[in-house]
Design a protein around this nucleic acid. Structure first.
Lengths: 227, 227
DNA sequence: CTAAATGTTACTAAAATGATACCAACTTAC
DNA sequence: GTAAGTTGGTATCATTTTAGTAACATTTAG
């Protein structure tokens, strides 16, 4: 397993179950941080950026779905797996409406939990190693390679990151600020106007030299989008 | 519901269940296409681009998870919800490994199905969060797109902002000062008399070139209103 | 140290927006 | 009702803003 460096938070007030969860998840290679209550989690989130949260509904102090709703309100967007004894339909509705992505009821099958967590991570793009596809583009994130219709294209580091952010958000206009943050990072200052344009042009020329495939479209006054 | 134009495919060999699924999904506003076998689905996918597939495991001809694996191999990446009577752990493993995103066993709660499908769509970005509607106009604030009766119309930034303020305040006369503040911003000086007129005209011409829909009416001495 | 990658700059092209002129429509006063 | 005055409609031109591109400069990696 190469799931190390994938960080998962588990919030569960029963120590036995928490331990069990930690055991199974760590066996799968995830890096797990357990909490017995939601109290310290927010503080933790300010420093770390976990790929997923497993949260119990019955927590001391705050109700699990309420906590998740708060986190969503604050902008945290990682997948959330609810794990709880509450199996009434109204509970389910609350769970999903608060921003949860999946819901399992105790007693749970650990194998199923791992499968579902795997699916959520794959969908949220946290699972590296996998390939990302868009039309005839296949990005191999591990090898940092791009294949277009079975042909390998060499991309530079910057170009790869750039294309990756687009493939992660297809059909959506990505504005220059977003791209700057995502690709160049927050620490980039003195950012020149045309840097993005130039990078985009070099990328476009590499993946579609004849300009016949129409992968990208500029969005005037905003940025670019992958069609 | 504003789930129109979200397309869902259902593959289910029992006609009764298929009909039930179609009923519930359509009631939620999704645009549903049902199949009794996987045969014609691949052909369908070449033309349409559904946001999600619901697939039964026991299909005539091909096993459901095998079919999904094939589709994944071909590069189709939409979320897949398995819906099946098979509840053995090995079935679950097969389902998720083939590229499924969620797995429900029959008999199923339709409410839960809808909740889970909603979560999958949200995560996959198909439910583009903010849409504003007025008559046959649908403004997608995220994509900065305007759709009129399933036709996409290109709008400039100014036109989009302008239309947006009208859709936010329908049936209401918006005076020039208000529009100036809202659309052009406070910093606009040297504001020419006819600037708003010209902008309005360009907008009207774009969204209704034949001038048959009567979206706007001038309010003499005040401004305009969206009827 | 060299070569590739990335950033900067200057220039061109294109798109969006603003200004203006002129005409049409509406309002009001007589 | 009609004419004068005011406001909206519209075509056209001008300006401004933004994107594309090539050439050059700087940084980074090997």
């Amino acid at each position: 397993m190469q799931n190390t460096d994938i960080e998962i938070i588990v919030i569960e007030d029963e120590p036995d179950i928490l331990e069990l969860l930690e055991y199974h998840l760590e066996k799968e290679g995830y890096s797990v941080t357990g909490f017995l209550s939601a109290e310290k989690v927010e503080q933790f989130l300010e420093e770390e950026n976990p790929a997923l949260m497993v949260v119990d509904r019955n927590l001391p102090g705050i109700e699990g779905s309420e906590f998740v709703a708060q986190m969503r309100e604050l902008g945290y967007d990682m997948p959330v797996m609810f794990l709880t004894a509450r199996d009434k339909e109204s509970d389910l509705i609350e769970g999903f409406n608060s921003g949860g992505d999946d819901y399992m009821t105790k007693p749970f099958s650990s194998k199923e939990l791992l499968l579902r967590i795997g699916a959520l991570l794959k969908r949220s793009g946290a699972t590296s190693g996998d390939k990302v596809k868009y039309r005839d583009l296949i990005l191999d994130l591990q090898k940092r390679e791009l294949a277009i219709a079975d042909h390998c294209i060499e991309l530079t580091n910057l170009e790869f990151k750039l294309l990756h952010t687009f493939v992660k958000n297809p059909h959506q206009p990505l504005d220059r600020d977003f791209l700057r943050d995502e690709v160049w990072g927050d620490d980039s200052m003195n950012f020149h106007d045309k840097t993005i344009n130039v990078a985009m042009n070099r990328l476009k020329k590499k993946i579609d030299p004849e300009a016949i495939k129409e992968y990208f479209a500029p969005v005037w006054g905003v940025g670019y989008k992958l069609l």
